Simulated assay, not measured.
Amino acid sequence: MEVRHTTNPTDVKQYTTERLRKEFLVENLFEPNKINMVYSHYDRLIIGGATPAGEALKLEDPETLKTEYFLERREIGFLHIGGGAAVISVDGESYELTKLDVLYVGKGKRDVQIASKDNANPAKVYLVSALAHAEYPTRKMTAEQANPTPLGSIETSNERVINKYIHEDGIQSCQLMLGVTTLKPGSIWNTMPTHVHDRRMEAYLYFDLNDDARVFHMMGEPTETRHLVIANEQAVISPPWSIHSGAGTSNYAFCWAMAGENYSFSDQEFIPMKDLK
């Protein structure tokens, strides 16, 4: 597992493009027969990607976590983003996921394995794990069950559908929140006007882009914005002090996941467009 340490917003103002990408962009999550993970010291969030194409992949990394098993002090959400069906085994009980299904697994589950139903058509599974101090039951949710909410308009280039899976009115968790936003054809903007929430960090995974499409992800303090150019199935670690917004060369989808002190969407601090620089 790769480990990323936190950064100082004052120092980030001086970063080159290469340094910004090294600190905040995660480029290679999905490789055949591997679970690739990144441990961020921002709220101890772990993001990862699994592409099982043979034997089931066991969720583990005792060397990094220094625990007996992965979910000893953690909870996790799995999102199916493409390929064939995935089969996730949790202490011997199996759950099948297809495109945009989410599985939440709470603290204390010992044996978690990820497999593809058909190895000739391997699944791509995104995972997000946060620290947890309480146990919540394992639960699967489809996109149709995630209260799809249409927002925005084609006139403002942000017509989209938001699916909220893990949150206070959906799948219950300790502190992890997770959802998916899908932009309609002709729309390119996400989270604009933008905001910050200094009590919790966020991670974005962009997916469903063509190979030659890119998203320009905006980050940084509101008066010191920067950007990252992001390709399909790449992720961004967004610090609590940073805006997180983006515009694509085509429409796309992205998974947003959060962890931190608050368990509410009401702590957002919206940034007026006139204040962005």
Rank of each mutant, 00 (worst) to 15 (best):
K34L: 13
Y69W: 10
V105D: 07
T98H: 02
E60L: 06
G77I: 04
T98D: 12
I81Y: 00
N33F: 04
E75M: 11
K107T: 10
N36L: 02
V90R: 04
D111F: 02
E18W: 00
G106R: 00
H41R: 09
H80R: 02
K117Q: 14
A115M: 05
I47V: 15
L29D: 13
K22E: 15
A53E: 12
K66A: 13
I47N: 11
A115H: 04
G82E: 07
E60G: 03
L59V: 15
G83H: 04
K58H: 10
N33A: 13
P52A: 00
N33E: 13
L103D: 09
T51N: 09
A50N: 08
K34H: 05
D43M: 07
E68N: 08
T51F: 01
L79I: 15
I35L: 07
T64G: 02
L25F: 02
A115K: 05
V102K: 01
E55F: 00
A56Y: 05
L65M: 13
E23D: 15
V105K: 01
G48P: 15
G54R: 00
L20K: 06
E31M: 07
S89M: 07
Y104Q: 06
G84W: 00
N28S: 14
M37G: 00
F70Q: 09
Y69I: 09
L29H: 12
L20Q: 01
L45P: 13
L71K: 01
H80E: 07
D91A: 06
G106K: 00
A115L: 06
I35F: 01
N33Y: 01
A50T: 03
Q113M: 09
R21Y: 06
L57H: 04
R44V: 06
E72N: 05
H41L: 13
K66N: 15
F70E: 10
E93L: 10
V112G: 08
D111I: 07
K34T: 13
T64C: 11
E63M: 08
R74F: 09
G77R: 01
V102D: 10
G49S: 11
G82V: 06
A115T: 11
N28K: 14
S116P: 14
R19G: 02
R73I: 05
K107M: 15
R44K: 09
I47H: 11
P62T: 11
I114H: 03
S94H: 08
R21Q: 15
H80L: 03
E60C: 03
L100A: 08
L25C: 10
G83W: 01
N33R: 02
K34E: 15
L97Y: 11
G106W: 02
L59K: 03
Y69M: 07
M37D: 04
E23P: 07
L45V: 15
H80W: 02
L103R: 02
E18L: 09
I76A: 03
S94N: 14
G84L: 00
E63I: 12
K66F: 04
L100S: 13
E23V: 06
T67C: 05
V105I: 12
E93Q: 14
